[in-house]
């Protein structure tokens, strides 16, 4: 029993991260119909930026957290302005390849700046003593992760429902042209979405780094899993991202626990395929998604 609980809690921790990254995909998808394959690189840059500010420069952890996330958000803006805005006839596939190019470019930059070695990053609380929950051990950082992810979920939800900007963004997500006709500056909403989604990725990077270490090539796999979680939950649905992330994390963890680690990914993706066959738009997704 405690074994099962351990697998479950482990799965929820990784799942929360997947969910956060999936959320980043969703925010952007809602505003632009675009899947950003450089999302994983924002996660990596968040983690490495946090390392540089917090460990190398010795800034207070809270400040380095905020600064790293802000810097990566700016980078998200820059990506939109420099690489995606100038495309004359934006069609999904070329845009996707641009983001693939951007992810390779950012990985190359990170390799130059931080080198190829992984780095260890301190947790948000100094204590390294695990907390015992019914015989299963949980690290304090895991609690931080789950807490922060839940906070962002709720925050994003409230932002969308309670603030004018948030409502404007939701309107853009529903129908960009209609929103534009109603006087919503949809261009600026797109920019905001880019900053948000990059920032969410960076938050993921900062909070996962103490558990996994961070290195210039950590982003690819995390981005992939986040994408997977977003699809599993239903593209564009924020709560779907959370559900998809946790489901994926728990599935992986149980697959490792009861089968073997090698086939973990296969199990996770088989379940994904199964769900997609039954519900081709994900668990909580709207029925139709644009084709390209």
């Amino acid at each position: 029993m405690s074994e099962f609980l351990q697998f479950l809690l482990t799965g929820i921790t990784t799942g929360a991260i997947y969910g956060l990254i999936a959320l980043g995909f969703n925010v952007l998808y809602n505003a632009t119909d675009l899947i950003n394959f450089a999302q994983g690189e924002f996660v990596m840059l968040g983690g490495l930026g946090f390392y540089t500010l917090g460990v190398v420069l010795g800034w207070p952890l809270g400040l380095s957290f905020a600064a790293a996330v802000a810097a990566v958000s700016l980078l998200g803006l820059l990506l939109e302005r420099v690489a995606l805005r100038p495309v004359k006839k934006p069609e999904p596939l070329p845009l996707i390849i641009i983001t693939v190019g951007a992810s390779i470019f950012l990985r190359g930059v990170a390799m130059r700046l931080w080198g190829k070695d992984p780095y260890s990053v301190p947790g948000l609380t100094a204590s390294a003593e695990p907390v015992k929950v019914f015989g299963a051990a949980v690290m304090p950082q895991s609690l931080w992760i789950v807490g922060i992810v839940v906070a962002f979920m709720v925050g994003l939800h409230l932002f969308g429902k309670r603030t004018l900007t948030g409502k404007a963004m939701e309107a853009c997500a529903i129908h960009r042209n209609a929103a534009w006709i109603l006087g919503i500056p949809s261009d600026r909403m797109v920019l905001l979405a880019f900053a948000f989604s990059a920032g969410l990725g960076a938050v993921g990077g900062v909070i996962i780094a103490p558990i996994t270490m961070c290195s210039y090539d950590m982003g690819t796999m995390l981005g992939l899993k986040g994408f997977c979680a977003a699809m599993l939950g239903g593209l564009g649905s924020h709560w779907g991202a959370a559900v998809g992330g946790v489901l994926l994390g728990v599935l992986e963890s149980l697959a490792v626990g009861y089968f073997s680690s090698g086939i973990k990914d296969a199990v996770a993706f088989l379940v994904l395929l199964g769900i997609l066959f039954v519900r081709p738009a994900g668990l909580l997704g709207a029925s139709a998604v644009k084709r390209f």
Partner: peptide
């Protein structure tokens, strides 16, 4: 060491200007 950067950049530039 700049190979990866150059590769990513070329991919982006080609797609930006010749989608």
């Amino acid at each position: 060491d700049y190979e990866m950067m150059a590769y990513g950049l070329i991919l982006m530039v080609v797609m930006i200007f010749l989608p």
